[in-house]
Simulated scan of single mutants.
Amino acid sequence: MKATLVLGGARSGKSALAQTAAETQAREHGGRLVMIVTAQAFDDEMAQRIARHREDRGGAWTTVEATHDLPAALARLTAGDIAVVDCLTLWLSNVMLAEQDVEAAADALVEAVAKAPCPLWLVSNEVGLGIVPENALARRFRDDAGRLHQRLAQAVERVIFVAAGLPLTLKG
C-alpha cells in the first residue's frame, strides 16, 4: 500500500490510527518516520495542542511543517520514508485563508501524492456529515473539503473511515 486516506470526525481516532500504522510499517520494513504537520499556532491553546502532539509522538519522528506548500513537502520525501500528513483540512483552511487558488492547490496535492516515493498516511476531517453551515465561508470550506476528499479517494490505494476509534475500510 502506497497511499492511504484516513477520514473521520474530530477526536475519532484517525490520527492515532495513521500514526500507529506508520510505526508498524517502520518496525516491519524499516524506514524514517516523518510527520508532516499543517497546523499553525494562532493562539496559546493551539500552541499547547501542537506541543502536546509533538511530545506524544516522541523522538522517533522527524517533524516537517507544511502549512501551505504541502506538495513541496511531499516532493522532499525519499523512498526510505514512511510519512503521515496531519491534517488535510487544516492545510485546506490555510490555503483558503491565504486566498490561494484552492483548485490549483488541490491539483498540485493530488499530483504530489501520486508521485510520492514512499508510503503515505493522509489524515483529514470529514466535515460533510453535519448540518449545512450558516455562513458562506464555512459552506465553501465544507464543499472544497468534500471535493478534495473525493479526488484523493480516487488517487490513493486505500481509504479508511474512522468513528469512535474503529476503522471501516471504504477502499482497498
Rank of each mutant, 00 (worst) to 15 (best):
M1C: 15
K2D: 15
A3E: 11
T4W: 09
V6D: 07
G8C: 14
G8R: 02
R11Q: 13
R11S: 13
G13I: 08
G13S: 09
S15Y: 10
L17F: 15
T20Y: 11
T20A: 15
A21N: 06
A21F: 07
E23N: 03
E23C: 05
T24G: 04
Q25I: 11
A26Q: 06
A26T: 04
R27T: 13
R27A: 15
E28H: 10
H29F: 11
H29G: 13
H29A: 14
G30K: 03
G31Y: 13
R32E: 14
L33R: 00
M35L: 14
I36G: 02
A39P: 00
Q40Y: 00
E45A: 13
E45G: 07
M46E: 07
A47H: 05
Q48W: 11
I50A: 12
I50S: 10
A51T: 07
A51S: 06
R52L: 09
R52G: 04
H53L: 05
R54P: 01
G59C: 04
T62H: 09
V64W: 11
A66D: 08
H68Y: 12
L70T: 01
L70G: 07
L70I: 06
P71Y: 10
A72Q: 14
A73Q: 08
A75L: 15
R76V: 09
T78A: 15
T78W: 13
D81W: 11
I82N: 03
I82A: 03
I82D: 05
I82L: 07
C87T: 08
L88T: 02
L90V: 07
L90I: 10
W91I: 02
S93D: 11
S93V: 08
N94E: 10
N94C: 04
N94K: 01
V95E: 05
M96S: 08
M96R: 01
L97D: 10
E99W: 10
Q100W: 11
Q100A: 12
D101S: 05
D101V: 02
V102Q: 13
E103R: 02
A104N: 07
A108F: 00
E111A: 15
V113N: 03
V113C: 06
V113I: 11
A114L: 07
A116Q: 01
P117M: 01
P117C: 00
P117L: 03
P117I: 06
P119R: 00
L120K: 02
L120A: 05
V123D: 12
S124F: 03
N125G: 05
E126S: 00
E126L: 00
G128I: 04
G128T: 07
V132G: 08
P133W: 07
R139S: 03
F141N: 01
F141H: 05
R142T: 03
D143R: 02
D144Y: 02
A145R: 00
G146I: 10
R147N: 07
R147T: 05
L148G: 01
H149W: 05
Q150W: 06
L152P: 00
A153Y: 04
Q154G: 15
V156F: 11
E157T: 14
E157P: 05
E157F: 12
V159L: 12
I160A: 12
F161L: 15
V162I: 04
A164C: 14
T169R: 11
T169N: 08
K171S: 09
K171N: 13
G172M: 08
G172D: 06
